[in-house]
Design a protein around this nucleic acid. Structure first.
Ligand SMILES: [Mn+2]
Ligand SMILES: [Mn+2]
Ligand SMILES: [Zn+2]
Ligand SMILES: [Zn+2]
Lengths: 150, 150
DNA sequence: TTATAAATACAATAATGTTGCATTTGTGTT
DNA sequence: AACACAAATGCAACATTATTGTATTTATAA
């Protein structure tokens, strides 16, 4: 599930990316690594409400640049942020996996295990990247609705 | 390419959906049907700048409800609106086609001809719908960049 | 022509995101 | 341990996108 990391590891991450070890950054890292879903910007903002909004945006931007997190818009156009699974690097992400948006709990899951189906596009179109979304019920919410029915 | 329709046909469309035939609505229809790409909200707003912004939002919302247009977020999270290809009805869209977002001209193309590859999700996930995006060069922009190179 | 519901225009407010700059802080060096 | 400086934060201002409420206007049916 969620990647478990301690504060020393977060400090290492920052250091490796030449980022200063600051309290706001460590808190953002800690929160995002504690979850197995992406975190929406509104959620981040309310949880981190004592950190200045602008600082939060700047932290998210620099983390994205460094390849620590990636940004994914859910099916309502809301920005969500998730920790990068693996080999993402500065300005070079590898995030072509399925994103699952639960219609009940609204969570966005990064399904890294699913590789993207390559398609042939109509003549003239030159694809550089693909993004695939699915919507529906996540495991938690499908379990709940099943209970309701029975 | 772009579906060609005249004003009488737009009036018919409105009538069939029990919408009053008003100048703002006819202009929005006319503009959207004249293009073969989706139109971004900022573009719509600047082109229709003499129509009240709120009116524009309400027109877009009611057109979407009625199945006349569908809303698609581009890879920057910007809302785009495109005419529905076919059998879309009130609160029941059939828009599971590839959306191609050109990285140069930023246009969003609805590639209706491409049917969605069905995937098997991890256990517990129940998919209700899929949305597939591609980014890269559209025919116009890939032609231009080819000329530059040669 | 008139009555009426629907649509538009306008005002106010909310949510999301950006820019500029003063202040604070982390970190390498003395 | 103290200093110097770049980096990061905090704050103010502003921009864009979107929603809600309400008065006014308009399309349409009687
Ligand atoms: Mn992801
Ligand atoms: Mn489409
Ligand atoms: Zn769920
Ligand atoms: Zn293009």
């Amino acid at each position: 599930m969620a990647q478990v990391k301690n504060n020393y590891q977060f400090e290492d991450m920052l250091q490796k990316h030449n980022l200063k070890k600051t309290a706001p950054r460590l808190r953002v890292l800690s929160m995002m690594y504690s979850k197995n879903t992406a975190t929406s910007q509104p959620d981040l903002e309310s949880v981190m409400n004592d950190i200045d909004r602008v600082t939060l945006y700047r932290i998210l931007n620099v983390f994205e640049e460094k390849g620590i997190i990636h940004k994914v818009f859910d099916l309502n156009g809301t920005a969500n942020y998730a920790v990068c699974h693996s080999d993402c690097q500065e300005n070079h992400h590898h995030d072509e996996h399925l994103h699952f948006n639960c219609t009940v709990c609204k969570n966005v899951y990064c399904l890294n295990e699913l590789n993207m189906p390559r398609l042939t596009l109509p003549a003239g179109f030159e694809a550089q990247g693909f993004t695939l979304y699915a919507s529906g019920l996540c495991p938690k919410c499908s379990k709940k609705s099943a209970v309701k029915v029975n």
